[in-house]
């Protein structure tokens, strides 16, 4: 009896060791290709390479002009990355929303506000209209990103909305200036 129990003990230890080894191997399989640690907020590229989203995001930022997969150099971008949701994860949030990409610089084409430079109210007047004129655009900037739905890829709809809103605000600004001129 004693011998058999010790044998089963040792065999169990062996299987334990094997399990540990295979666990290690499994862990290796889920290492981020950039930080070489277990992938946090894991995303996978279309070419099949695993990364932490913060790591990949920083890589894409570093090489914004030439975005390629850090492993195989296939062309990738933020939109061609698939988030991975495990079962244990309570917050099923798109990791791509967590480290929001820096908002792109916002600039308006000169023809959109041709009215501004031509007007001369004197110093005080000019400053006033400029401040108010800039307001809707500042508002737009914050609006853009807080409103983005979680997990839904940014479609053309939102961009259209943005376009529509910017036109709307432009008209409000123009009407305001006209009202100022008349008053």
């Amino acid at each position: 009896m004693a011998t058999t129990s010790s044998e089963s003990d040792s065999s169990r230890k062996n299987t334990d060791n094997k399990e540990n080894e295979s666990k290690d191997e499994q862990n290796n399989m889920f290492e981020c290709n950039i930080c070489l640690d277990n992938a946090k907020d894991a995303v996978v590229s279309v070419c099949g390479h695993l990364f932490c989203w913060p790591c990949l995001h920083q890589w894409l930022e570093t090489r914004s002009s030439r975005q390629v997969c850090p492993v195989c150099k296939a062309v990738i971008s933020k939109d061609k990355v698939i988030p991975i949701y495990g079962r244990g994860n309570t917050k099923q949030e798109d990791p791509r929303n967590k480290v929001p990409p820096r908002p792109a610089g916002q600039r308006t084409e000169p023809d959109a506000n041709t009215g501004f430079p031509g007007f001369n109210f004197g110093d005080g007047g000019f400053h006033l209209s400029f401040g108010i004129g800039a307001f809707p655009f500042g508002f737009l900037t914050s609006f853009n990103f807080s409103d983005r739905p979680h997990g839904v890829p940014v479609g053309g709809q939102l961009q259209q909305d943005d376009h529509y809103l910017s036109k709307l605000f432009l008209w409000i600004a123009v009407i305001f200036i006209v009202w100022l001129l008349l008053a």
Binding site: N33, I34, P70
Partner: peptide, 8 residues
């Protein structure tokens, strides 16, 4: 130089 990739 320019062909560096983060997984290297």
């Amino acid at each position: 130089k320019d062909q560096w990739a983060a997984a290297m």
